[in-house]
């Protein structure tokens, strides 16, 4: 469990994290979203004890980051941004080093290292130098060191950044499998990732918390939520018919498709279906929109941008 209380961090004049307060419970996978430079990594560095906050604090499983940093670090598994690793070491020695640093000694350290390597399918590269591994494998080594001590809190900074789609998928699977009985915070600027992985999403922009919701809740904020998109042979004629529907709030024609936006609390799809049947249109595609996360993200983070002072 993580309880952040008014976390703030300055770099000179820059306020990188600006009074962020939130709580993450066990079992939650929190997606930490925000544009580049929003303050995601800085927040994670504070939570993991790498950087002290300028003000505010956080309690992790009952330990305060400000005066119990070592205890906090014992609770946490952390994958820093870019997954930095000691490239000149081979995989198993590196994991054994992490195990010993985490307080395991002798045979126990070796067992922990081997078990972590096992969980991330690193068995056949154990003796390989880390710098010679592919990016996907390096990321797995980074994850292996993070989960080695079976931490109750996992903090992963852009764990899929720079990976190809297959590797991304694989890493997400791994994280999903680790999510039970843990508190996980994953930062990303890839929106589908939040939908695929998280049961909660927080958006930060300019160091401030601007949204805290479930991924579904965020999607519902999209103006596309429950909109209907279709393509027919005569776009213009169809658009003008559809715009007269009482259920339609707005109609847009773009890229050979018509999108009809609903009035609140109406069954737009039923109405559209009725019109199609009445006019006997040739419909090539027809779909109900769930909502577009990228649009929500843009709106929320744009609103948060500092406004130019009115002259």
């Amino acid at each position: 469990m993580i309880e952040a209380q008014s976390l703030t961090r300055h770099f000179g004049d820059l306020v990188a994290v600006d009074g962020i307060t939130f709580t993450v419970d066990t079992g939650q996978v929190l997606g930490f979203l925000g544009p580049n430079g929003a303050g995601k990594s800085t927040t994670m560095k504070i939570l993991t004890g790498f950087l002290p906050p300028t003000s505010g604090t956080a309690i992790i499983n009952g330990y305060d980051i400000s005066n119990d940093s070592l205890a906090v670090r014992r609770e946490i598994g952390y994958l820093p941004e870019g997954a930095p690793l000691y490239g000149e070491m081979d995989v198993i020695r590196f994991l054994q080093f992490v195990a010993r640093a985490r307080g395991f000694s002798g045979a126990e350290a070796e067992r922990k290292a081997a078990a972590a390597a096992d969980r991330l399918n690193l068995k056949h590269v154990l003796k390989q130098r880390i710098e010679t591994l592919s990016k996907g494998y390096k990321r797995r080594v980074g994850l292996a060191q993070a989960i080695l001590h079976d931490p109750k809190v996992l903090i992963l900074d852009e764990p899929t950044d720079g990976l190809d789609p297959n590797q991304k998928h694989e890493v997400r699977e791994l994280i999903r499998n680790m999510s039970e009985h843990r508190t996980i915070v994953v930062s990303t600027h890839i929106l589908e990732e939040v939908d695929a992985l998280c049961n909660r999403a927080m958006i930060i922009a300019d160091g401030k918390l601007v949204a805290d919701d479930t991924p579904a809740g965020l999607i519902e904020r999209s103006r596309y939520h429950n909109a209907v998109t279709l393509s027919v042979t005569d776009l213009q004629a169809a658009a003008s018919v559809l715009s007269k529907l009482p259920e339609a709030a707005k109609v847009e024609v773009r890229d050979g498709e018509i999108t009809v936006f609903p009035q609140p609390d109406t069954h737009l799809l039923l109405a559209v279906n009725r019109v199609i049947a009445e006019h006997g249109w040739q419909v090539h595609t027809l779909r109900l929109e769930a909502g577009r996360l990228d649009e929500v993200f843009r709106n929320i983070t744009r609103e948060a941008e500092p406004q130019e002072a009115a002259a």
């Binding site: 941004e81 930095p84 000691y86 992490v98």
Partner: peptide
């Protein structure tokens, strides 16, 4: 330079 300092200093090592 390589960022491993973040790895090292977030282990429970002073």
């Amino acid at each position: 330079k390589s960022g491993t300092i973040e790895l090292l200093l977030t282990l429970p090592i002073t």
